[in-house]
């Protein structure tokens, strides 16, 4: 600790020659206190702040046409095709029943889907990531989600979207262009702000 402080001191514009030994030790004490205070404040902020959500991550897909998604829906009835949702904003959510942040964001997605189901401007499309279909189905059922979801059995959808680990969420505009990649849990509000920003920019 004190070594680090000395290092910091040596970088200050005051040369040691300009300081008396007494004022020097005072500077050391002051610097130690400052460092300790900053450290405590940092720990406090990190410990108390809500879990990071709606973190936009860079992706080479942003601004490009979204990779195609098609397959049978998780509950076995019907065929899902991403291109069928043209004309609406599509929120593609990669999830897994074994992933805790996915459980955290699920009520937010339910809220988002409910709100936009009324206005009809946006839909949610789920993609199960490395999850046995029965588990994924149970997870969706118990959280009250009613949106279409696909079982990505081979992982080819995840690799096409550049997914690393769930939850990851992509926002696609009505023309099928990827607007944003969000890593970690999303919120209803966070998704709304991405979409309203896109609308205001005419994207």
């Amino acid at each position: 600790m004190s070594d680090a402080n000395f290092d910091q001191l040596s970088q200050t514009p005051l040369s040691p020659n300009e300081l008396t030994p007494r004022s020097r030790s005072r500077v050391v004490i002051l610097a130690s206190f400052t460092v300790a205070l900053v450290a405590i404040a940092l720990v406090a902020i990190l410990a108390t702040r809500p879990q990071a959500g709606n973190v936009q991550a860079p992706s080479p897909l942003v601004g490009q046409n979204a990779p195609s998604i098609s397959g049978t829906s998780l509950n076995g009835n019907g065929f899902i095709n991403l291109s069928a949702f043209r004309g609406k904003y599509v929120v593609i959510n990669f999830f897994a029943s074994w992933c805790t942040p996915c459980q955290i964001e699920e009520p937010e997605l339910v809220q988002f889907a409910y709100q936009h189901g009324k206005t009809g401007d946006a839909v949610v499309l789920g993609v199960a990531f490395n999850d046995p279909s029965s588990d994924a189905e149970n997870f969706l059922h118990s959280s009250g989600s009613t949106w279409p979801s696909i079982d990505d059995t081979t992982g080819s959808i995840a690799t096409a979207f550049g997914v690393s680990e769930p939850p990851e969420t992509f926002v696609i505009n009505p023309q099928g262009i990827v607007l944003a990649k969000l890593i970690g849990p999303v919120t209803d509000q966070g998704l709304d702000s991405v979409i309203s920003k896109a609308k205001s920019l005419g994207e």
């Binding site: 990531f129 490395n130 081979t154 992982g155 080819s156 995840a158 690799t159 690393s164 680990e165």
Partner: peptide
């Protein structure tokens, strides 16, 4: 042996 690594290998 991360799930995505297994997926990429298969891909």
């Amino acid at each position: 042996s991360a799930p995505i690594a297994v997926d990429i290998r298969a891909e």
